Simulated scan of single mutants.
Amino acid sequence: MAVRKALAGAAALVASVALAAPALAAGPAHHDATRAALRAAVADGVPGVTATVTEGRTGWSATEGVGDLRRGTPRSTADRYRVGSVSKTFVATVLLQLEAEGRLSLDDTVEKWLPGVVRGHGHDGRRVTVRQLLNHTSGIYDYTRDDGFVRTYFLKDGFLQHRYDTLRPQELVAIAMSHEPIFEPGESWTYSNTNYILAGMIVERVTGHSYGDEIRRRVIAPLGLRGTSVPGTRPTLPQPSSRAYGKLAKTATGPTYDVTELNPSLAGAAGEMISDSADLNRFYRALLGGRLLPPRQLAEMKDTVDTAGHLPGVRYGLGLADRELGCGVHVWGHNGGIHGSGTDAVTTEDGRHALAFNFNADWTGDNDAVLEAEFCD
């Protein structure tokens, strides 16, 4: 759910025609640097990585390392995996579609849609807007920073006991409300998963349907994203997939645990989704290419704010980040981390050149090196 390094460390409006599936090329020479970066990630300790590049109507896919440490089986280019905070772009897209339909305004307060929910220890939903949720300028405390939550759901003893717990969005928000805000609404920027738990709750209040149902109806089905799902409380990954591994500790040393199965309600609208690399490329190309949002809403999504020194080279819009790479190229997208999984999915602004990849580890992996290799070398 948290943004990893480089983002890091962090209806009628839906196009009715899905993007054509790219033809997978054998591996042109200009991807040699990307393959080398994938190999370097495995050499540095990532069990395995899967990646897909789409350029126009052609594509290239590659894997390195293993998908199952016990059996030694390789990763697959068709692997489905947990995408963590990449989910945020899907949620933001639905809210912007609702705005385009006149069903809400980004300048509505959270209180208007969720009366009394954002209250306590200085939090006040009457002073926070939907826009501030989506661009992380709300100041609302991130529930995943709570010490008790970390012990229960991220560290070994707690995770192994509680990995199948179901958590309601209201419970996650209540954890955040037990802390003071990080800053006053609009005064700064910091990444908070609570923002998107609230965003998912607003989708449900506006539409009468869960945010997952709205994502399926408005994005997944129209684009034909067959490897993408909103699992709810389902703890398993659909096939094909690899195992996911974590240290379940505050350091990157020590034993490695299989963390593939977990109840993703602990992430909810902030990071529960599952996808594959080809689908993520299709989604971001469709989004940046104007197939999911009208021009005004896409411009709002791309209206970025400074990340206040938290993420150098990154500006953040509405569930969408603009990253300037070392060579000056800008890529748009999101990354995401959740137990045993680190994902990055980006595209150039014109939607023509896209890359999505996944490490089946949550303690290591250089996202920046892969991005720089693909878009700069």
Rank of each mutant, 00 (worst) to 15 (best):
G122L: 08
H123T: 07
D124K: 06
D124P: 13
G125A: 07
R126W: 10
R127P: 13
V128F: 02
V130N: 04
R131W: 08
Q132H: 01
L133F: 06
L134A: 05
D142P: 11
D142G: 05
R145T: 14
D146K: 07
F149N: 12
F149R: 05
V150M: 04
V150H: 06
F154Q: 13
K156L: 14
G158N: 09
F159V: 05
F159C: 03
F159Y: 15
Q161R: 13
Y164G: 10
Y164F: 09
D165I: 04
T166S: 09
T166F: 05
T166R: 12
T166C: 11
L167C: 12
L167F: 10
Q170V: 14
E171V: 15
E171N: 09
I175G: 04
S178R: 08
H179W: 10
E180R: 15
E180A: 11
I182M: 09
I182W: 11
I182C: 09
E184A: 15
P185Y: 05
P185T: 00
E187S: 15
W189M: 12
S192Q: 01
N193I: 14
N193K: 08
Y196L: 05
Y196E: 04
I197E: 03
L198K: 11
L198E: 07
A199H: 06
A199N: 12
G200E: 01
G200C: 01
G200P: 10
G200I: 04
V203I: 11
V203E: 00
V203H: 00
E204W: 00
E204P: 07
E204S: 10
V206W: 06
G208H: 05
H209W: 00
H209G: 03
Y211R: 01
Y211Q: 04
G212H: 02
G212S: 07
D213R: 15
D213F: 08
E214C: 02
E214G: 03
I215V: 02
R217W: 02
R218D: 04
V219N: 03
A221R: 08
A221G: 08
P222S: 07
P222I: 11
L223H: 04
P231S: 00
G232N: 01
T233C: 11
T233A: 15
T233I: 14
T236H: 04
T236A: 15
L237M: 09
Q239S: 15
Q239F: 11
Q239R: 13
S241H: 14
S242W: 08
S242Y: 04
K247G: 10
K247W: 07
A249Y: 06
A249F: 08
K250I: 14
T253A: 15
T253L: 14
G254F: 09
T256A: 04
T256P: 10
Y257H: 14
V259L: 06
V259Q: 03
E261F: 07
E261D: 11
L262V: 08
S265Y: 13
S265G: 04
A267I: 10
